[in-house]
Design a binder for these strands. Structure first.
Lengths: 354, 354
DNA sequence: CCCCCGCTCTGGATCGTTCCAATCGTAGAT
DNA sequence: ATCTACGATTGGAACGATCCAGAGCGGGGG
C-alpha cells in the first residue's frame, strides 16, 4: 500500500511519540513527498483539490516540518541571533525588555524565532563567529553599537546579514542597514516643552563627553536653547549615570535661582534632580521643571511622576524585522538607515497646571 | 588525493564563503569523517597524535559543526525554548531581564542557546505545540506558572523535557522538575526586620486573594507576626498592583498612628506607601518602616531608597540549567523541586539609624 | 494527425552530520 | 603458529526536508 518506507506503526504505542514526517503525510494523502513540500512552500503549484486533501492530512496528523531537516537542505534556519548583554550601563535594561518582546512577536509572524547568545563582555565579537560558522542563524540584530564597536565591520566583512539598532557613528565606509532613535530630537522636544511651561534657564544633565549617544542628546538641548535665544554657558554638566551624582549637580545648579528647568540624559539623572528638589522643599512641576529620558518604570512610579522622552522601541523592532526580511530576500534597500522620532510623556514633574 | 567528494576549491574566491565541513577537515587531516566526528564528540577514542592532528586542522580552517546537520542526525538541537511574555502584571519585568541573562550565559557554557518565542496571550499553550512538532528545541523553561496554568500538564503529557520556574501550586499529580523562590520566607524576613527596628503593628499590602503567589507571601507576614505575638486583624489589605491604590490604602491605615510598619507584595506597592509618607510629612525609616518586594530598579532609585526582598534569580537560572541537563541526560532527579531563599536588601526606608 | 507546451506531480539526489557494523593491525593467551 | 581480544579507524546508511530533472496528461496550433 505504502510506496514509501514510512516508520512502523509502533509509534503510537510509545509514550514519547515520534512526530509525523513529510513522508508520513505523503503516504496518508496518497501523494509524493515533493507534493507535500509544495503544499507548504508553493501552494499555488498544486491543483486546488490536491492542496486541500494534503492540508487536511497535515491538519489531522498535526504535522510541522522538522526544522533541522529544512534548515540543512535549504540553508535557512529561520533564527535571528541577538547577543544579550547584562544590564548595560546608562541605558536602563527595561528598555531592552520592551524592545525584545516586540522583536520576538514580530519575527514570529513570519516563522522566525529569536536566538539569544552571550559572549565574553571583554570581547564584543565573541559568540558571533561560532554562530556564523555553524550556520545557526540567518541574521543578526546588533544592539550595542555605541561608537567604535567592531561588530558591524566584522559582520559586514563576513558577508553576514544584519541590522543594527544604532546608527554607525564614526564609520564613513559603513554601508549596512540600521535603525536608530533621534536622541537629539528627543532632547529638543523636552527642552521646548519646558520653554513652553515658562522656564528660560534650562540646564542639561548629561553623560561624559565620550558617550556619542549622550553628545547627540545634548545637541538637541543646545539647538532648542539657541532657537529660543537663551545662552547655554554654564548650564550643561557631564556626569556618570547615577542618582547621587545628579542630585549633587542639581543642588549646585539650584544655587542660581534663575535656573528652573532640567533636561536629563536619563531617568536616573532626572530622579536625582527630583531628590534635590525634595531636599530643598521645591515642588517639582510648580517651582522646577524636570524631564528624564527613556520612560522607565522608575519614571512612572516615582513621585510625583517624572516626565520623560520615550523611545518608540516597538516601532524599532518592527522596522528591524522588516529590514531583515528585505536583506534576507536579497532585495535592495530603499534606504540605508532610518531615524525614528521619540515622543514626550508628560507627567507632573513638568506641568504647572497639574 | 582526496577520497571524499569535497567542495571545489573555488570557495575561497567567493565573497560569501562557504564554511568548511566535516569532510573538508577529514580530507585535510587525511582521516575519515567519522574520525573527525569522534575528535569532537569522543576525543578519548582517538590516539593522542591523531587527535592533535585533527584538532590543529579544525583550528586552522576555523571549523564548527553545522548545527542543522548535527541536530537532524542526533536529534538534539541544543536549544532551550522560553516563551517570552510581555511585561507581566505584578512581577516587574526587570526581573525577567536579570533571570534571562544568567540563563543565557549559563546555558552557553554547555553549548546551549536560548530560543525565545511568543504566543497568543489568550492561549498559554500557543507556541509550544509547534516547536515540539518541529523538534526545534530540546527542552522548555516555563516561567509563568501561576496557579492553574496548563503548560506543565500539557508538556508532561507530551513527554517533553521541561523545568518550571514556579512550584506546581494546586496540582497534586504533577511530577515535573521545578525551582521556586520562597516568597513566604521573603515576607517573613522583611517583617522580622521591621520588628527588630521596633515596629509592632505592621501592615501587609498585598494582592487579590486569587493570586497564589500573593497568598504565599502574605502567609510569611502572618507567620512572623504570630511568632511575635502581634494580632494581625485589620492589618492586611488586598489591592491591585499600582502606586495609587497603595498610596490610598496606606493613608487609610496611617489614620491609626499605632501602625508604623508596612510590608508590601511588590515594590510598586511599597513606593505607594512612600508617597503617602511624603504627603503626611512622615519620614520613611524614621517614623515609618517600609519594605517592598523584588528589588526593582525603582526601589533602588526612589527616595530615600526602598528596602526590598530580592529574589536570587541568578541562582534560579543556574539551577534550572543544571536540572535541564539532568533531565536531558535521562538521569534521575535527586529531588522533584527545590526552593530557594530570597534575601533582604535594606535601604533607608526601613532603617532608623540611616 | 502529430508535435509541443504547460500544468501536475513524481522519484532520485543531496545538505552535513552521527549511528552502526565492519575492518585492520597488534598484542596477549592458548 | 593460531585464535581471541581489543584499540583505532573506516565507509555506508540514515536523519527529514528541499532541489532538480523528468514523466504523464490534456489541449491548442500547425
Amino acid at each position: 500500500m505504502s510506496q514509501h518506507t514510512s516508520r512502523p506503526d509502533v509509534q503510537r504505542s510509545r509514550h514519547h511519540q515520534t512526530p509525523p514526517t513529510l513522508a508520513t503525510v505523503a503516504d496518508e494523502a496518497g501523494v509524493s513527498r515533493q507534493t507535500v513540500s509544495n503544499a507548504l512552500n508553493n501552494p499555488d503549484l498544486l491543483r486546488p483539490e490536491t492542496l486541500e486533501r494534503v492540508q487536511s492530512v497535515i491538519e489531522r496528523l498535526g504535522y510541522s516540518p522538522n526544522r533541522a531537516a529544512r534548515q540543512l537542505r535549504s540553508g535557512a534556519s529561520h533564527l535571528i541571533g541577538l547577543r544579550f548583554e547584562p544590564a548595560q550601563e546608562g541605558t536602563s535594561n527595561a528598555l531592552m525588555d520592551r524592545f525584545l518582546h516586540t522583536l520576538v512577536e514580530t519575527a514570529s509572524r513570519t516563522g522566525h524565532h529569536v536566538l539569544l547568545f552571550s559572549g565574553n563582555p571583554q570581547d564584543p565579537l565573541d559568540g558571533y563567529e561560532d554562530l556564523l560558522r555553524s550556520t545557526a542563524v540567518d541574521a543578526f540584530v546588533v544592539t550595542d553599537t555605541y561608537a567604535g564597536t567592531p561588530q558591524s565591520g566584522f559582520l559586514q566583512e563576513r558577508g553576514a546579514p544584519f541590522v543594527t539598532f544604532g546608527r554607525p557613528w564614526d564609520e564613513p565606509d559603513a554601508d549596512h542597514a540600521w535603525i536608530d532613535v533621534d536622541g537629539a530630537h528627543g532632547a529638543r522636544i523636552a527642552t521646548e516643552h519646558l520653554l513652553e511651561q515658562g522656564h528660560r534657564r534650562i540646564a542639561w544633565l548629561g553623560w561624559e563627553k565620550t558617550s556619542r549617544i549622550g553628545q547627540d542628546r545634548r545637541s538637541g538641548w543646545e539647538a532648542a536653547m539657541r532657537a529660543a535665544g537663551v545662552e547655554t554657558a554654564g548650564l550643561g554638566v557631564r556626569l556618570t549615570d547615577n542618582v547621587d551624582a545628579a542630585r549633587m549637580a542639581a543642588h549646585a545648579l539650584m544655587e542660581d535661582p534663575s535656573i528652573t528647568g532640567f533636561v536629563c540624559a536619563s531617568d536616573t539623572l532626572g530622579i536625582g534632580v527630583l531628590h534635590a528638589c525634595a531636599e530643598r522643599r521645591l515642588r517639582p512641576g510648580v517651582d522646577v521643571g524636570v524631564v528624564g529620558f527613556d520612560d522607565s518604570l522608575a519614571a512612572q512610579v516615582t513621585w510625583p511622576g517624572l516626565s520623560s522622552v520615550r523611545q518608540p522601541l516597538e516601532q524599532v523592532a518592527v522596522e528591524i524585522v522588516r529590514i531583515l526580511h528585505t536583506v534576507l530576500a536579497h532585495q535592495p534597500l530603499e534606504e540605508r538607515g532610518r531615524m525614528l522620532r521619540p515622543t514626550l510623556v508628560v507627567r507632573r514633574s513638568s506641568t504647572r497646571t497639574g
